[in-house]
Design a protein around this nucleic acid. Structure first.
Lengths: 136, 136
DNA sequence: GATTATGTTGACTAACATACTCAGGTATCG
DNA sequence: CGATACCTGAGTATGTTAGTCAACATAATC
């Protein structure tokens, strides 16, 4: 049930930028705060930009900043974008359902569904603002 | 947040055996009911046996059966044995904690802890008997 | 006691995912 | 112009997953 380093790193970066309140931060700055290797962080920031969470400015005095208010950034969405579905099994995934030959009789499916709901509820009701303000 | 096929298959096998109430089932039987490839299922059943969940009988008329009552088999334990810790990140794992350099100031850690607790609670309060009796 | 049905063991492999690095290219400011 | 940033795409080392396969050991039955 692990979250990959990529997901963790992305959230670290979003938090670092959220704490900057509008100022741009260079990749090197963010790397320093998050302890994510610069070259790897570049990739992740770029992806977050493509997903619409970040804006960037090139050239001197450039850097990254949030493209949305922290309370508009839902953690569940971020994780889904970076790691795929939250559901533990394809058969109970809402965003990318996969059929299973046991489907009808499977005694596990309702259980996986319970777990999916529990995880999704937590992740979808938490925003970047909640993390930054320590209000969970 | 996926569960591996190995974990799913192990639970399928336990359920299949739990429904047999004491009768032995051959690997081929279990494979037929669970749709897990015979050669792969062999490995998994062997592991479940080493973990103390199953007993086996060799030779003709042999097969596998549960070594414990279904209400003594906790799903969380099974998953942990087959897939490692339930926690999404090492820094909030109880069974295999890993330190993180951000530890003190990390705004994510309390959040991961919340998720860990939610998953662990569900998995640790559910037994094989609950699955078989459809009481979740 | 030979046969046959079963579990046991260990090695092996193809495919994919993870966690990065690196070499260059492009825009912008001063 | 040139320094400082972000941008792009390729490459790579390591590990995990999801299996397969061949040969062996044991127990029941005829």
């Amino acid at each position: 049930m692990k979250v990959s380093s990529r997901g963790e790193y992305a959230l670290r970066a979003l938090i670092a930028l959220g704490l900057q309140e509008g100022n741009v931060s260079t990749i090197a700055d963010i790397s320093g705060q998050t302890l994510v290797p610069v070259a790897y962080l570049e990739q992740i920031l770029l992806q977050l930009k493509m997903l619409g969470y970040l804006k960037s400015k090139r050239g001197k005095n450039g850097g990254y900043m949030l493209a949305k208010a922290p309370d508009q950034i839902v953690i569940g969405d971020v994780i889904r974008s970076l790691e795929g579905p939250l559901a533990p099994m394809g058969c109970v995934s809402i965003t990318s359902y996969e059929a299973c030959p046991l489907e009808g009789t499977c005694l596990l499916k309702p259980f996986w569904a319970l777990i999916r709901d529990s995880i999704a509820q937590l992740l979808d009701q938490t925003t970047l603002a909640h993390l930054i303000e320590r209000k969970l």
